Simulated scan of single mutants.
Amino acid sequence: MNKKQILALIGIAVTSCFLAIALPLITPTPLIAQSNINLLISAAASMTDALEEIQPIYEQGKPNVNIRYNFGSSGALQQQIEQGAPADVFISAAKRQVDALEKKGLLVPGTRINLANNRLVLIVPNNTTGINSFFNLADARIKRIAVGEPRSVPAGQYADQVLKKLGIFDQVKSKLVLAKNVRQVLAAVESGNADAGLVYATDAKISNKVKVIVAADEKYHSPIVYPMAVIKRSKNVPAAKEFLAFLSSNQAKAVLKKYGFIVN
């Protein structure tokens, strides 16, 4: 091997060493934003179908974000958050639960917004006849009336208000069957385990086993509104804010309208 060949080999070796050292320094590392983000959304049970349809639409545009849901009664979800259970976003079926979290400083300031509104309706099994108003709930043939537990289920709170405003609460209170969330009320009427029930219009809309008799006059109950906000303990506040912004988009509103929610 002559001198030129030796020098060439040395040059190649030096260049290789330099590249081995320099390349890690100049190769960009993946951005944190590109890593997978898991968002846990605690939401009122009445939002189940709409939010589940929204999930793949959102994830298609945000492939690094995984949405998971925790559905239940708004009161139970509020208690979970107060007790430290993980959640990035809370969507309630009433203001009271979000008000309570806000007063305790558990929400990210400035993230609270109203998502939608709803109506309270009286439903019965499809084969029921002769029922045309709330006052028929006092009839002897109506044995069981399913409603949400008023202390934790907003639909139950609204039902309680309506029955009292109409002056029939004392006549029907012995018939009331309390459920843990509004979907349990719907299931009780669908199965015939209850002769009637009070649910949201959106719940009645998804069932072909019940029929709506009448919608409650809105003057008889508090406004049915769905406020949402980011939870302060969230480890993904920016991503949670982006999800809330999407829920307020026209694309998400179209899904909510499809399921009967009232949106502006």
Rank of each mutant, 00 (worst) to 15 (best):
E53S: 07
L107R: 00
I262V: 10
Y69L: 08
D139L: 01
N2Y: 00
P227T: 02
L122M: 04
E52H: 07
Q83C: 06
E190M: 05
L115D: 08
S191A: 14
D49K: 14
I213R: 02
N264F: 13
I206P: 04
G105E: 02
S73T: 03
P86G: 00
V214F: 08
N36M: 03
Q60G: 11
V182R: 00
T48R: 14
Y69F: 15
Q83R: 11
A8V: 10
K258N: 02
Q78K: 11
A239M: 11
D195S: 12
A116E: 05
D88I: 01
S248C: 14
Q60S: 12
L256D: 05
N2V: 02
L166C: 07
V89A: 02
F135C: 02
L106N: 03
N127A: 09
G130E: 02
F135I: 09
V255S: 11
T111W: 06
L256R: 08
K209Y: 10
N114Q: 15
S35T: 15
D217K: 12
N193P: 00
T48Y: 09
G197M: 09
A188G: 01
V162Q: 08
S73E: 06
D217E: 09
I26C: 11
D49V: 09
A93C: 03
L107N: 00
K232G: 14
E59M: 09
L178G: 04
N114G: 13
N181G: 08
G197Q: 05
A245F: 09
I262L: 15
T29E: 15
A155T: 06
T29Q: 15
I206Y: 10
V182G: 00
A33L: 07
A240V: 01
A239F: 10
A240Y: 01
A93G: 12
D49N: 13
N193W: 03
P24F: 05
G11K: 04
A187E: 04
R233Q: 10
K103Q: 12
A116M: 07
I224P: 00
L25W: 13
Q184A: 05
F169I: 04
I91W: 00
K211P: 08
E102Q: 14
S234C: 09
R141V: 15
K95W: 10
D88C: 00
E52F: 04
K104V: 01
E149K: 13
L39R: 02
Q34H: 12
K253C: 08
A239W: 07
D217Y: 05
A116N: 01
V65F: 06
I57M: 15
S207H: 03
T128F: 10
R119H: 14
A44P: 05
G61F: 08
L19H: 07
A43T: 07
N236L: 07
E218A: 12
P109V: 02
A93L: 02
A215R: 12
Y58G: 08
Q5C: 12
S191G: 09
M47K: 13
L40C: 03
V212K: 03
Y220S: 10
